[in-house]
Design a protein around this nucleic acid. Structure first.
Length: 902
RNA sequence: GCGGGGGUAGCAAAGCCCGGCUAAAUGCGCAAGACUUAAGAUCUUGUGGGUUAGUCCCUUCGGGGGUUCAAAUCCCCUCCCCCGCACCA
């Protein structure tokens, strides 16, 4: 490279300062302007600062926010910190540091790195969830929910992580382990606070359909998590007892097949049923071991299905048969009623029955097998079919029978229709210090009393006053926090010492950004109405269920409280892919971590962003490549050199075809990049920019038209701006522009300057039309034996077809043309053909004969002997002799394509 | 098992929705050339196979079949990979 090296970091610093000083990324609600809310999932300020995943997240968000800004949107693009959480507290215990200080240091570190990247955030809207200004509104919302009965306390078996020493929500148990530390989760009977997310189960499910552009898999995951299934609860009276066992089924059509009932080991009826039977001891033993194993075995792939007979029988309400009641480990208490009706049309039931020699009975047969019985089966028949052995329902298909049988069961008071969800209420109590205190007080007289609104926030006591022993709930150790007066009766009372799950913090932070200084309500309604919903949310797939489901839930609750209008918080969601190195996720233990700081220091922030955006589609995994980073760096240097060269370069004169081509490329690139960015195909967008850069690079080596070149680089600068904003600003300034390119309007492509190629094709088609007419005339006069088109083989076929239609009215001629077709093995190709056909259909009298686009190809075709040149300069040859070989025909002749008529 | 997403040149990655400008963007790698004392950097060209002075031909988008004048692109079957959920009754 000639000239001095460009110092990209210096450029970056210069513009970051200018941006900050001018405040161009600050926004206010402007009703006249169309808003765009671009949001990235806010980070947890961990000790190690930003990792590549963050950088990718922000690179995507920043690029899109900048693009939208240039498109004239009023863009809200904020950043904040999810600052409560365990690592701070663990660090506090381990290193005797103040969790607040620890968190603040990390936030400062993170922020400095974000600043280094030159992200276009409105930093005035920054927030951190660990400050009372923020978490008091967690408490406020909690109290509202308490009032509405959406927050409640109950004793329940909860997931307990022995490592984190706290309970976990169901969503936070991943593969039987804690979502943070992967420690095996235990079950503990505890009194805990819950949020009634189940009250919104239906809405959360239905409204998935209302969402804009969300990845399908995220919607599916949520759908599965909510797990709605409609079915019937069928009651099985216990023989000889006054009780009945309710079972849940989605397949009431199999009721006549039910030959046994299975209870979960935890089912409350188990002991009662077994009492006094011969099997009592065996049952007790089994239940004990099953419960002990259940937690551990949850991880086992193929757990053996085990069970014991309780010694009791139930009555099948349909067949009135006496059927045995079993206890088995495959029935889970958490789902349905904890009791399962079992039959021959379920794989698992079938296997279990075979193992223990329980009678089976089929009620559905395949349509083509009239003599169907259990004896023929080695595994369950689970397909649809025709009902048998089912009384009045025999002969129907099972799909027809299902609703009828459900109604019949309900009518006979043997069952009721129910809708079952897998979704459980959200357990938010955490036995930890570094979180939002749950704002309630326990009074001996008044019971659970919410802290009055005016006393909010319930502030965390400073850590010096709390003992971090690693055992028990830390806040319990702080007497002055715990001992309070009852807000109602003023008697001595105790404060709740559990804190809230940090997912509460992140369930509404996007609303707080709308008015982060507000101190009378969680957020200003007007502001929220203006900005919400988030137009584009960007973050990792790991939050597919937890955060994204909770945030949706909160939004609906806040809506019902009349605080906002939006039903859904995030209209469009993009889940960016992971950043990999050597095929694996970057992690300290693998030792394959690349620190973003290294890259930024070495190449500058623009290179880091361009690389990360260019290497893969945003939602796909990105394999880190040092060479690729070099490539991105080279690109920026190249852009700098060609754009810097453009100043007062070249001369003004009439446009040559080369100039026109460059102009066309410029505008088609604007068009392409715009479309690609709109669709988030940022990698392809950069590819298109590179194409233009390559074109301009070549162009700049030759004769240059000043206007064309400056128009090109001006647009290039604008196009590059969302991807490499610092460089773009620098170039913009070099080109003598006032103001920021970041604030400039996105370029508009000028259609008339594009598609010169296509225009040329149009012209050719036009010209050829008349040529072909001549050929047709000629062909009629000469009555040729064969018509041979010497054209690019790509297009022969279609032309032959047209000729066939026009000339081949008689059998002979058609035969001739067919021969030609077969022998030449013609393969038509190209959109032009389509155009020709369309024209031919529109105006059959004007059939174009030949279409050749490339000049080279035009030269290739020649007529040999008596060349007839018509008015339109079309070479047409009439040949009596043997078919000339193609070589002959291909002798040099510049000009129009030739048509040989024999 | 259920559900979701994939399989494109040495590698990565576009193209597929909306079939034809596609032997397939772009980057990396590789090769040749220019510049240089040299290296690096930079630039140019090439990079499925075979051929020509210019060119043209053949074969390719996991495998098989179909639709069409025309398929990486649409339809059907099949193989393989990844990811979620999973004793869900």
């Amino acid at each position: 490279m000639t000239g001095a090296e460009v110092d990209f970091n210096k450029i970056a610093q210069k513009w970051q300062k200018k941006w900050a000083d001018s405040g161009i990324f600050k926004v206010q609600e402007e009703l006249k302007k169309k808003k765009f809310y671009c949001l990235e999932m806010f980070p947890y300020p961990s000790g190690s600062g930003l990792h590549m995943g963050h950088v990718r997240n922000y690179a995507i968000g920043d690029c899109y926010a900048r693009y939208k800004r240039m498109r004239g949107f009023n863009v809200l693009y904020p950043m904040g910190y999810d600052a409560f959480g365990l690592p701070a507290e663990n660090a506090a215990i381990k290193n005797k540091v103040n969790p607040k200080k620890w968190t603040e240091d990390n936030m400062a570190l993170m922020k400095s790195q974000q600043k280094l990247l030159g992200l276009s955030y409105d930093w005035d809207r920054e927030l951190a969830t660990c400050y009372p200004e923020y978490y008091r509104w967690n408490q406020w919302i909690f109290l509202k929910m308490l009032e509405k009965g959406l927050a409640y306390k109950k004793k329940a078996t909860a997931n307990w992580c022995p490592s984190c020493k706290t309970v976990l929500a169901n969503e936070q148990v991943v593969d039987g382990g804690c979502w943070r530390c992967h420690f095996l989760v235990e079950q503990k009977e505890l009194e805990q606070w819950f949020l009634k997310i189940t009250a919104y189960a239906d809405q959360l499910l239905d409204d998935l359909g209302k969402l804009g552009n969300w990845p399908e898999r995220v919607k599916v995951m949520q759908r599965n998590w909510i797990g709605k299934s409609e079915g019937v609860e069928i009651f099985f009276p216990v023989d000889g007892m006054k009780t009945a066992i309710p079972t849940f089924t989605t397949r009431p059509d199999t009721i006549f097949s039910v030959t046994f009932v299975v209870l979960a080991p935890e089912h409350r009826l188990v002991t009662e049923l077994a009492r006094g039977t011969k099997q009592e001891k065996e049952v007790t033993e089994f239940v004990k071991s099953a419960i002990r194993e259940s937690t551990i075995d949850r991880l086992n792939e193929e757990k053996e299905k085990k069970g014991v007979f309780t010694g009791r029988y139930a009555i099948n309400p349909a067949s009135k048969e006496k059927i045995p009641i079993w206890v088995a480990n495959f029935a889970v208490m958490e789902y349905g009623t904890g009791a399962v009706m079992c039959d021959a049309h379920d794989k698992r039931d079938f296997k279990f029955a075979k193992k223990y020699g329980i009678l089976l009975k089929v009620v559905i047969r395949p349509a083509d097998r009239p003599n169907f019985s259990v004896e023929q089966l080695s595994e369950a028949y689970t397909n649809d079919g025709i009902m048998i052995n089912s009384g009045q329902f025999n002969g129907l298909t099972n799909t027809e029978a299902l609703p009828k049988m459900a109604d019949w069961l309900v009518k006979g008071k043997n069952g009721k229709k129910v809708i079952n969800f897998k979704l459980r209420d959200w357990l938010i109590s955490r036995q930890r210090y570094w979180g939002t205190p749950i704002p309630v007080v326990y009074c001996k007289k008044c019971g659970i009393v919410g802290v009055p609104e005016k006393e909010l926030p319930v502030e965390l006591p400073p850590p010096e006053k709390v003992k971090f022993t690693g055992e028990g709930n830390p806040l319990d150790s702080c007497e002055e926090f715990v001992n309070v007066k009852c807000p109602k009766c003023k008697a001595n009372a105790r404060r709740e010492t559990d804190t809230m799950d940090t997912f509460v913090d992140s369930s509404w932070y996007f609303l707080r950004y709308c008015s982060n200084k507000e101190n009378t309500v969680p957020f200003d309604k007007k502001a929220a109405e203006y900005w919400m919903p988030v137009d584009q949310y960007i973050g990792g797939i790991e939050h597919a269920v937890m955060h994204l489901l909770y945030a949706r839930f909160f939004t609906k609750v806040l809506r019902d409280l009349g605080l906002i209008d939006a039903d859904e918080p995030f209209n469009n969601l993009l889940c960016q892919g992971m950043v990999l190195k050597d095929g694996a996720v970057m992690s300290k233990s693998r030792g394959n971590v690349i620190d973003p700081r290294e890259i930024i220091t070495k190449y500058g922030p623009d290179t880091a962003k361009i690389f990360i955006l260019f290497m893969a589609m945003p939602e796909k995994e990105l394999e880190w490549s040092d060479k690729g980073v070099e490539g991105s760096f080279r690109l920026l240097r190249k852009i700098h050199s060609i754009a810097a060269k453009g100043l007062n370069y070249g001369s003004s004169k009439e446009l040559s075809s080369k100039d026109k081509q460059v102009l066309s490329k410029t505008h088609s690139t604007i068009k392409k990049v715009t479309e690609l960015v709109e669709e988030f195909r940022l990698n392809a967008a950069i590819g298109a920019v590179i194409e233009l850069v390559n074109t301009l690079s070549k162009y700049s080596d030759g004769e240059i038209n000043k206007e064309v070149y400056s128009e090109a680089i001006r647009n290039l600068t604008l196009l590059v701006s969302p991807f490499a904003p610092h460089l773009a600003e620098e170039l913009w300034e070099l080109q003598g522009n006032k103001g920021f390119v970041s604030a400039h309007q996105w370029p508009k492509f000028e259609e008339e300057k594009i598609d010169k190629e296509a225009e040329a094709i149009e012209q050719l088609v036009h010209d050829t039309l008349s040529d072909f007419e001549t050929v047709l005339q000629l062909a009629k006069i000469e009555k040729p034996k064969e018509v041979v088109l010497v054209v690019a083989p790509k297009w022969k076929y279609e032309l032959v077809r047209i000729l066939k239609e026009e000339l081949g009215k008689t059998r002979d001629q058609r035969a001739l043309i067919n021969t030609c077709l077969a022998e030449k093995d013609i393969k038509p190709h190209g959109q032009e053909v389509a155009k020709i056909v369309q024209m031919a259909l529109k105006d059959p009298g004007k059939l174009p004969a030949v279409l050749i686009r490339k000049e080279k190809e035009l030269e290739a075709y020649t007529a040999t002997k008596e060349t007839i040149e018509d008015d339109h300069n079309c070479k047409v040859k009439v040949e009596e002799s043997e078919r000339s070989n193609e070589q002959k025909a291909k002798q040099a002749m510049p000009g129009k394509p030739a048509i040989v008529v024999r």
